[in-house]
Amino acid sequence: MADETTTAATGPGAKPVVRRNLLPRIDLASLKFAPTLAAIILGLIVLAAVFAPLIAPYDPIKMDPMARLGAASFAHPFGTDGYGRDVLSRTLYGAQTSLIVGLGAAFVAVLVGLPLGLLSGFFRVLDAVLMRVMDGLMAIPAILLAIAIVALVGSSLWTVLVAITIPEIPRVVRLVRSVVLSAREEPYVEAAIAVGSSLPKIMWRHLTPNTIAPLIVQATYVCASAILTEAILSFLGAGIGTETPSWGNIMSEGRLYFQLKPGLIFWPGLFLSLCILSINILGDTARDVMDPKLGKKRKA
């Protein structure tokens, strides 16, 4: 049974398996072009959101009947919309909405999903019930569920946030559960049982750390997906009201004038796409860095 991979670290040619650390150290030299650019773009969007009140040239909801559907000009770089509101200002403020929704959904989904997943991975009876509920929740298309919730409760930012987060929770629960199920088979967990560690201690000390890396990756995807869902909801007219600018509702209003003024869809669409793209690239990068499978040593 001298499996070469298990004792390979004894040979001098073999590198020790360093990749099991909680967070791998980041080698600056290995930073790739795409993730760096993504981080910069996302940074700029965050700055735009935080400082929107300072840098936006106009009040995003102030209507100006004299300046309806204005072309791009020095005064209005992105032009004005059907009510004469400045599209640049609305787009900058829209970043606030998107980031609140994205970060909020990621945070809440992890906050709810992590404990549920941990418990589900450990208690069989609870698992059976919880997984049926999660299966059912996953069977309902996220958009339709969100639409139903918004249709029933009303379309404030917070309702939309809740409506978007609920369909994301099952994915987090399932992820945590699968990590727990495989980690609890590890001999070091059995060793902890053998030395008399209590269940909470085993969960906290031996199982939870395993979930952190995949959770970070999953959280980025939840974040991107939530921003997208919010935009779709608003685009369909079932999202946040236009008094709170969001990239989705700017585009929703722009649909009427699409052939006339493509900029109404183009600018918020560009911001939205870049934002989601950056988050996804960073998520992929995080996954590649943290995925132990890619760090797996070859047989030597």
Partner: peptide, 10 residues
């Protein structure tokens, strides 16, 4: 990644 990130309506 691009296809995944650009919203359907865009």
């Amino acid at each position: 990644v691009l296809g995944f990130s650009i919203p359907v309506f865009v």
